[in-house]
C-alpha cells in the first residue's frame, strides 16, 4: 500500500477490502464529502471522542452508504461516526473515488497538508444539516471555499442541504433560499462574486440524494454532451418520451436526453432499477446448468414511451443482457435494457 500522500489520518481508519487496490487510481477524479462536527472548536478532542455519537452527524456517512453501498436508509441509524477519511472507489463506466472526510478534522490547520486531500479533487460536496443550526457550518463552508478558491480553482462546489425531509413541505424552499442567500452574501463580502456553487435539498429517505449526486457526477463526466446527443438521437428515432442512462449500481444517472418533461421520471426509473435488482437477487440464484454471468455494475438504458412499441429485436444469446418492460400502467410503458456489463 503506497499511500504516502494521504497523510496519517487515512492509515488507521476502517477500510473496505477494495481499498488495497486503490494505489493506481489515486489520481482518478475525486469526490469529497464534507460536513461539520458541530462543537469541534469549542470543546476539543476529548469531547469529540465521548460525544461523537449524536453531535457529529450531519449525515455524510449515511449518504455515502445509501448511495454507494445500497444500504437501506433506516439502517444508517446504526452507523458509527466517521473518525478517519473513508475512501470508496467506484468502478462504473468511469472510475472515481469518493472520500468521506470526518467532521472533526480541521482542514485549515496550517500543519495539515492540503494537497493530499484537495489535490485532484473534481467536486466537493458539503453536507449541511437543514434542521440543525446552520450558521456555524456556513461560516466554515465559506472559509473553506475561499481557502480553496486560490489553490484549487477547478473544484466544483455543491451544497447538499440535507435532512430536508424533516422540514415541512411548505418551508423547504424558504430554508434552501435562506441558506443560499447567506452563503452568497458571505462570499460576496469576502470579495467572491458568482461563486461556482450548486445547491440541492436532499434526504436519504427519497430520491433527492440520488438526484443530487447525479448532478454532481455529471459535472465530472467529460463526455456528457456526447452522451446527451446520442440519447437525443435514440429518443427522436423511437419516439420515446424520456430516456435516461443509468449506472445500475449507484442509481446515479449519467446522462439523459435533454427534453424537459413534467414529473419526475428519474425517480420512476430508479425505482424500476431497484425492482429489477431486487427481483434478480431473489430469483437470479445460480441454477448450475446456465452459464454464470455475474450481475454487476452495469449501465442500462431506461426509456419511457407513451405508446406500444415493438421490442422484438433478436438478442444475441451469447451476450445475454437483461431487459424488462412494464406494459400499460395507465397508458404508460416502461422499458429497460442493459447495454453493457
Amino acid at each position: 500500500m503506497s499511500r504516502g500522500e494521504d497523510g496519517e489520518q487515512a492509515d488507521d481508519g476502517p477500510q473496505d477490502p477494495d481499498s488495497k487496490k486503490l494505489a493506481p487510481i489515486e489520481r482518478k477524479p475525486r469526490l469529497l464529502l464534507m460536513g461539520l462536527k458541530r462543537y469541534a472548536k469549542i470543546t476539543g478532542v476529548r469531547y469529540l471522542v465521548e460525544a461523537n455519537e449524536d453531535k457529529c452527524r450531519s449525515g455524510k456517512s449515511s449518504i455515502s452508504n445509501v448511495v454507494f453501498r445500497k444500504m437501506p436508509p433506516q439502517d444508517t441509524l446504526f452507523l458509527p461516526t466517521t473518525t478517519a477519511i473513508l475512501k470508496e472507489s467506484m468502478h462504473t463506466f468511469m472510475d472515481f473515488q469518493v472520500w468521506d472526510l470526518p467532521g472533526q478534522i480541521d482542514y485549515l490547520d496550517p500543519n495539515f497538508d492540503p494537497d493530499s486531500i484537495f489535490g485532484g479533487v473534481g467536486a466537493m460536496v458539503w453536507v449541511l444539516d437543514a434542521v440543525d443550526n446552520y450558521m456555524e457550518p456556513i461560516g466554515r463552508l465559506t472559509e473553506t471555499i475561499l481557502h480553496l478558491q486560490d489553490s484549487y480553482p477547478f473544484i466544483k462546489f455543491t451544497v447538499f442541504i440535507h435532512k430536508i425531509d424533516s422540514i415541512a413541505d411548505d418551508s423547504r424552499e424558504d430554508v434552501i433560499r435562506d441558506i443560499m442567500q447567506r452563503i452568497t452574501d458571505d462570499l460576496y463580502d469576502a470579495g467572491l462574486e458568482n461563486p461556482p456553487i450548486n445547491y440541492y435539498g436532499t434526504s436519504i429517505y427519497d430520491h433527492s440524494i440520488f438526484e443530487g449526486f447525479s448532478r454532481v457526477m455529471q459535472g465530472l463526466v467529460p463526455q456528457l454532451p456526447i452522451f446527451e446527443n446520442l440519447l437525443n438521437t435514440i429518443k427522436d428515432r423511437c419516439h420515446f418520451e424520456k430516456l435516461y442512462l443509468y449506472d445500475v449500481y449507484s442509481k446515479v444517472y449519467i446522462a439523459s436526453d435533454t427534453t424537459p418533461i413534467a414529473g419526475s421520471a428519474y425517480e420512476l426509473g430508479s425505482d424500476f432499477i431497484d425492482l429489477i435488482v431486487d427481483l434478480s437477487e431473489v430469483h437470479g440464484w445460480h441454477r448450475g446448468n446456465t452459464q454464470d454471468s455475474k450481475m454487476k455494475a452495469q449501465q442500462i438504458y431506461i426509456e419511457e414511451c407513451g405508446f406500444e412499441a415493438d421490442f422484438t429485436q433478436p438478442v444475441d444469446p451469447e451476450v445475454q443482457l437483461a431487459e424488462s418492460q412494464v406494459i400499460n400502467f395507465k397508458g404508460h410503458h416502461l422499458y429497460l435494457r442493459e447495454i453493457n456489463v
Binding site: G284, W285, H286, R287, S293, E323, S324, Q325, V326, N328
Partner: peptide, 10 residues
C-alpha cells in the same frame, strides 16, 4: 399494470 416481464441472464 397489465403485464410485467424481465428476461435476465439467469
Amino acid at each position: 399494470c397489465e403485464k410485467f416481464c424481465i428476461s435476465a441472464p439467469k
